[in-house]
Amino acid sequence: MSDLKLFNIAEKSTWCPGCGDFGILASLKQAFAQLDLYPHNIMLVSGIGCGSKLPYYMKANGFDSLHGRALPVATGIKLANHELNVVAISGDGDGYGIGGNHFMHVMRRNPDLTHIVENNQVYGLTKGQYSPTSPRGFVSSTSPDGSIETMVNPMAVALAGGASFVGRGFAGDPKHLTELIKKAIQHKGYSLVDILQPCVTYNKINTYDWYKERVYKIDDEDGFDSTDFGQAWAKAREWEERIPIGVIYQEDRPTYEQQVEELQRGPLIRWSPERPRDVLEAIKLEFE
């Protein structure tokens, strides 16, 4: 286990008091420390939004990219240096809205990275518009009569999309969340950790209390097998009355980088850019 303090940084957060992101930040640091990781062998890649500011508040390598674009940047970094522990961090708008196409395709590629989505079901940083995971009827500044769209179900989309690890956590239960993040990081392949995260300022529906009345730990269910797709699918569909948290689904599958021939000799960054002159001269002959 590494020292938790290694991840501390002086930077003052811009999150609202009571924001669910604080619990997520604490759990992520705990998970890194407990897994004996260090700031220099972690790479946090985020998009834009309240949740995507998380890398600012932790000491580790970080790349705060563009809105919705954490996954492609993270994939590029991972494939160029697969020794880094890459964690992509986004919110629901970032990860499931503008970045939805990347989400679709990262799942089927299965690079070994963990994708944390701080899902507060609202656009917070732009001051309270409905998001892809806002429930039908959600009243916001851009849906004054209530949203008429069906919300994205990230668990079901991830299962259908072929994610090899699908998990859900709750910012109000940091201890459980820490364990879930640890499992996700240890998983070899793409791991989604969707985190129910109350927005105390702009989401007056999905509050801490709202979640506390509904969430339950899937591990407490007798006979639940997270390697059984059918059971996972049934759990993924649960929402209104009961909301499962924990590892919904997990399967062993080769990672993308395990299947790229060039990466079997070690990280791509270790290859010198100098190519042998004779190889290049020989290529010229192909044109004759």
């Binding site: 890649v45 940047v73 160029a80 395709h105 960054i269």
Partner: peptide, 19 residues
């Protein structure tokens, strides 16, 4: 990639890592 947005961002990621 799935689109050019991804293509350029993966290249940025790979370059940032050092290739």
């Amino acid at each position: 990639c799935e689109d050019e947005i991804t293509a350029v961002l993966m290249a940025i990621g790979a370059a940032h890592a050092g290739v």
